[in-house]
Nucleic acid binder design. Sequence first.
DNA 1: CAAGCGACTTGTAAACAAATGG
DNA 2: CCATTTGTTTACAAGTCGCTTG
Length: 576
Amino acid sequence: KIVLFLRKLFNRYHSFLFSHGYTDGSKWRFLEHKGPVFAPPYEPLPGNVKFYYDGKPMKLSALAEEVATFFAKMLDHEYTTKDIFRKNFFKDWRKEMTSEEKSKITDLNKCNFSEMNEYFKAQSEARKQMSKEEKQKIKEENERLLQEYGFCIMDNHKERIGNFRIEPPGLFRGRGDHPKMGMLKRRIRPEDIIINCSKDSKHPKPPPGTKWKEVRHDNKVTWLASWTENIQGSIKYIMLNPSSRIKGEKDWQKYETARRLKKCVDRIRNQYRDDWKSKEMRIRQRAVALYFIDKLALRAGNEKEEGETADTVGCCSLRVEHIKLYPKMDDQEYVVEFDFLGKDSIRYYNKIPVEKRVFKNLQLFLENKQPEDDLFDRLNTSILNKHLQELMDGLTAKVFRTYNASITLQQQLKELTCPDDSIPAKILSYNRANRAVAILCNHQRAPPKTFEKSMQNLQTKIDEKQNQLSAARKQLKAAKADHKASHDEKSKKAVEVKRKAVQRIEEQLMKLQVQATDREENKQIALGTSKLNYLDPRISVAWCKKYGIPIEKIYNKTQREKFAWAIDMAEKDYEF
DNA sequence: CAAGCGACTTGTAAACAAATGG
DNA sequence: CCATTTGTTTACAAGTCGCTTG
């Protein structure tokens, strides 16, 4: 058994141990899969479900009807009230109409989709009300599909595929103020799909009567299939699950790069502080931007094409309007106020005191500029990353985010964990360390709609528990008194039983209180992203080992699969 | 060096499943 | 047992970054 286990480890982490995979840049030797699963074909509405135009029922052609259902399904969503969404939808919908329909349907406001909307609501209600057997049957069918299409063979391993289903057609839902929201995401056909697999594998078969766009054998990439999406014209891929060797290895490499940064970060910090004094504007800008990326964990900030996406920025693309300078604020000097929309249009708002030199530089960068001008007009991500590459092999802007996130977790864990705490209390400390990172990375969330209520529920539980506890304590007291009076075995036992009960309830109460604290502190903060993408899992694994916390308390099943490499490798003395 | 493409990681929302409580 | 709440998984959008091309 041990030999088998070691062999498994060896096979799995072969390339972890011996150089970085293949030396020629190839990602695999053998790749075999069944191809993607396509979205089910459109099922026309039953005749009694009608669409009304200008108050009158109107039968739509299949294509026009399908697109109409996309809108009808979203009627309760805020999207359908937005002007841009409606405009884009209507424009694309009209493209799918027959010329007759086109001439008739000229105003979206005269369209009544409510019957269609009711129908879909009823459908989903019916789905919920299905019997156990029916639900079981659907589950089994899904499982069958997963078993057939959800796995591939890459080199010597059967690997889980991340997304083996092709995205179904629908209306594009951009985030924030996206100029393309509401546009029709068209149906993907086999003729749109490029298949990637090895020559010597059994090639996937396209559905009967269809052809793939292309079958290629490129082992310099990791994807199994790809297609071009019609909204931005970008390529979408079918790739492996995070538990796969190829993703795990990459993940591990990412953290190793961040650890190399740890070794030279002092040098780099001294360097950019020096560069604040440079006579060259571009170097000063580069140095100030890098300072922000390091100190505030900002993203790099590539330029974006105007009108194609929501207006969001990162460090290099900050504009004058996104910062305010305060020479004095309250009792602090040289305060910079940031207020901008970052990735996914999440607001970044922060006020931080900076060093005088940085402040003076910022004032300089702002001179003679309009609000919509670039703050760093002599800088972009490409220039910055080229510079970083010279400072350290493999260094790019995002490595700072990884590094600062992981080092913060490690240091916070050290600071917050009390060895004598109970397990729930230690987990609270872990979550607090995790929270420090999430705050650094600005991983916010809208407070859940049911937050107040769920908080109240928890409080009621705590109150109940407290009552229980005082009752149990009373009983214990009584039992003790009883024992003192009688001194018999029976009453002695009773005292023990009551003592145990009190202890149990105390523990339960403490657990609830910890849970309440944790939830309250987590109101506006999302821990998931940092846990999954920024925190070296070996730090967490080592922490669990050191304090005897079962790993299941920190990582759920999916996360344990993703971080299997770290769980296998890290010991209790692991240092990031 | 700007523009654009390609491949990959990172991010939130929504759907779904499991757990909990009345 | 069902309804509600909570945790997990999926979907897919939105970033980063390297490379090519003109």
